[in-house]
């Protein structure tokens, strides 16, 4: 147990526009931590020396955290790409000291390792066992605290209400933590007409070590055009409502250590959008500094495993789950519209199964189609 102040940080990747937007914040010494998606450099042939030096500078101060994108935690099949991802994490962790490593909840819909987007899986003992095994492998590779991020997307209200509890059961064996993404939470509050006080209590708040804030977008439903869906697209300014959620959530998370502002570089191509990003950061930091000044000592648990982890051999897999994931991915990526996807799902092996497709919200199935088709060619 140690005592710390909450640190304000930014997502920091090898992206010109994101770095251009962040540079004035670095120069004014405002950035207190950076979060690097260490598995997104697969297309880059050479990492500039200055980027390595930037990572090292934050790493040496215990202010570098890693956020994976592509691991596909719940894939029913254990793949050579996942083993390569772990080998890569092990190498990178030997070169940089990460304060913690995180990944996304869900499985990737893409046809290969670097395509698709994470979407949810049934909350069963089988998926729980696979998720726990994969988290143990990540922890063994990086030798630092490991956490998972709550998903923005859910198929049904029942799934939204059970997400926090399932996350807690997943991370418990590695004594892990969660990233509470407040824009993801905002999406669920809006898309399922929930109130903050009820939903926030469904999460293990003493397990929150990191918070994300970001912007997103509204999308009209094709099923009923007057109905809008909130999407976690990371391509706009942080909404006022998310700053409000941050103010409300800070006092509830006694082990919080980092708050990170996320935005995609593709949305930072104008001076105006870059200035808005800087103002969002300054506003986020102001909220955190105010909270820090009123709360002198924040206890921080280490979130390291309480006992040494022995990895499962053979690696737990589920051929049936994998087949269902491939089938679902194909339906989502290739259906022309919601009605075609619905017909295909009811003819598929997911019908009358633990996926409970019969309970899926029509708007969320439509959203799943849009997410899968947006990212099927990769990021």
């Amino acid at each position: 147990m140690s005592v710390s102040k909450i640190r304000s940080g930014v997502s920091c990747n090898l992206d010109n526009q994101l770095l251009q937007a962040t540079l004035p914040l670095f120069a004014s010494e405002k950035v207190e931590a950076i979060e690097w998606s260490f598995d997104t450099l697969y297309k880059v042939r050479e990492i500039p020396d200055w980027f390595v030096e930037l990572l090292r500078a934050f790493s040496q101060e215990g202010r570098l955290i890693g956020h994976g994108v592509y691991f596909s935690l719940f894939s029913g099949k254990w793949t050579t790409e996942q083993q390569r991802w772990l080998d890569h994490l092990r190498k990178v962790s030997a070169n940089f000291k990460f304060d913690h490593i995180t990944e996304h909840f869900g499985f990737m819909t893409g046809e290969d390792f670097h395509k698709g987007a994470p979407i949810s899986v049934p909350y069963t003992s089988e998926t729980l066992a696979i998720g726990i095994d994969r988290l143990q492998r990540i922890q063994e590779a990086c030798s630092c605290p490991v956490g998972l991020e709550n998903l923005a997307f859910s198929y049904s209200l029942d799934e939204v209400q059970r997400h926090g509890e399932f996350l807690e059961r997943l991370i418990e064996p590695v004594n892990g933590f969660i990233i509470l993404d407040l824009h993801n939470l905002y999406c669920q509050l809006q898309n399922f007409s929930l109130d903050f006080e009820t939903l926030i209590r469904a999460y293990p708040l003493d397990r929150v070590r990191e918070i994300h804030i970001s912007g997103g977008s509204w999308e009209s439903s094709g099923i009923r055009p007057e109905r809008t869906i909130r999407r976690d697209t990371h391509d706009d300014a942080v909404p006022e409502a998310v700053f409000d959620l941050l103010r409300k959530t800070l006092p509830l998370c006694k082990n919080l250590k980092f708050v990170i502002l996320e935005q995609l570089g593709i949305a930072l191509h104008t001076m105006e959008s870059q200035r808005q990003f800087q103002m969002d950061f300054e506003r986020m930091q102001s909220i955190i500094h105010t909270f820090n000044s009123r709360n002198q000592s924040i206890s921080v648990t280490d979130f390291l495993p309480k006992e040494s982890i022995s990895l499962n051999e053979p690696v737990p897999e589920s051929a049936k789950l994998y087949e269902q994931q491939v089938e679902l991915s194909s339906i989502l990526e290739h259906s022309a519209d919601y009605n075609e996807a619905l017909r295909s799902l009811h003819r598929s092996s997911l019908a009358h199964s633990s996926w409970e497709i019969e309970k899926w919200s029509p708007y969320m199935l439509e959203t799943a189609l849009r997410i899968a088709q947006k990212w099927k060619q990769g990021w």
């Binding site: 010494e29 200055w50 202010r63």
Partner: peptide
């Protein structure tokens, strides 16, 4: 966090020349 002026210069140059 304070970064060295040489690192800030290197990032600025690196980003500006893409």
């Amino acid at each position: 966090m304070k970064l060295s002026s040489s690192l800030l210069q290197a990032i600025t140059l690196g980003v500006s020349v893409a």
